Simulated scan of single mutants.
Amino acid sequence: MKLVLKSLAVAAGLALAASSAWAQGYPNRVITLIVPYSAGGPSDMIGRSVAESMTKTLGQQVVVENVTGAGGTLGAARVARADPDGYTLLIHHVALPASASLYDNLTYDTATAFQPLGLINTGPMVLAAKKDFPANDAKEIIAKLKADGQKTTVAHAGVGSNAHLCALLLQKAVGQQFTLVGYRGTGPAMTDLIGGQVDVLCDQSTNAVGPVNAKSIKGYAVSSKERLPALKDLPTLDEAGLKGFEFIIWHGLYAPKGTPDDVVKKLNDALLIALKDESIIKRFSDVGTKTFPEAERTPEAHRKRLMSELESWKRVIAESGASAKAQN
């Protein structure tokens, strides 16, 4: 028995040493960062900003690949199936925990399929409409949403996306059902809003600040408790009459479950460097989002938030009655 135990201990030690030696050589080839939404959207912008910095830190190219569809679940499924070697990563947002309750046939378990690497940024949504929408301020658009219901077309980036979740929360807050129009990302949704093909979009500040300031669309309110410096003239939805309304977006970086601890640390270290980059901080600030406090950038803090939001979105979506079918 002692001989067997000794052999097992030796084998375990050799495996650990081999893993550590392998991790020391990481990375030695291109890393792919999956963005589960279309190019030009907010997740794409955040992902490319982080990838650019991590490329410099890690000494290997971090290439962004947009894998769109099914509210971000197709891209997430791609990473869940990938080898846990640190060469396939995922950037995702609030829709990752929400989709676990929205979709009843996901091919992965959101709670266990991913290794959180660190939280990136947080910011509000912006309630906006096409530029000829007949409402002059936030109180007027809320009144119109309440009065018109399904006459209002509300764009979103696919079932489970942030824009879709915001639309669900708005429906609940105003006591009406809208006509929801899905796209393969907020990039094309915003394009159609600017073109007047849809009435309303609740979009991340990272995607909405530019068109609002350019007056390509009408901005009405933000979904945070406080006003947004980048859109200082817009009230909060709470101020506009939807008491207690708050919807904050956050992005995080993920690897497949089973990724070696040494690789997780290297990736988190590279992410921390990116989040201290003044050019990235300014880029985020200019579009109404900010990096998480340093204490919340660890894999442990990221996992805690993911687990918490899995539970909270389960309750919200059950109350909304929303559901979808995923093909991933």
Rank of each mutant, 00 (worst) to 15 (best):
A100G: 08
Q171R: 07
Y103N: 05
A135H: 08
A147H: 07
H164Y: 15
A167E: 02
H156W: 15
H164T: 01
A147V: 10
D109G: 06
L168S: 06
Y87H: 05
L165D: 00
H156Q: 08
L145H: 04
L127D: 00
A111T: 13
L145A: 11
G118N: 02
L89P: 05
H164M: 08
D109P: 05
G160W: 07
P116K: 04
A147M: 11
G149I: 07
A155K: 02
A128C: 10
F114W: 08
D85C: 01
A173F: 04
K131E: 09
K130T: 11
T110W: 09
L89I: 06
I91Q: 03
L106F: 10
D132Y: 11
A100L: 08
H156C: 12
P97G: 05
L169G: 14
A167P: 12
S99M: 06
L90G: 02
H92Q: 13
N121W: 08
G175F: 02
G175E: 03
Q115Y: 12
Y108A: 03
N121T: 12
T88M: 09
L90V: 09
L119P: 02
T152V: 10
Q115A: 12
P97H: 03
D104K: 12
P134W: 05
V159N: 13
A129S: 09
A157T: 04
S101C: 09
L89G: 09
T110F: 13
L145V: 05
L165T: 01
K172W: 11
Y103C: 01
Q171K: 06
A147K: 13
N105Q: 07
T112A: 14
D148T: 08
L127R: 01
G118H: 02
L169Y: 15
T112D: 13
F114S: 01
D85G: 06
G175I: 12
V126R: 00
V174D: 00
M125C: 11
T112K: 15
A129R: 00
F133R: 05
G149N: 04
S161G: 08
S101G: 05
K146D: 05
D104V: 13
L119V: 14
A155W: 03
Y108R: 04
I142G: 04
L102P: 10
A129P: 07
A135Q: 07
T153N: 09
P134S: 01
L89C: 15
K139V: 10
T122D: 14
Y108W: 10
Y103F: 07
D109T: 07
Q115V: 09
A138N: 06
T152A: 04
N162T: 12
H92L: 10
M125T: 11
N121V: 09
Y103S: 01
D148M: 10
L127K: 01
K172G: 08
G118C: 03
A95S: 11
A147G: 08
T152K: 03
A129I: 04
L102Q: 11
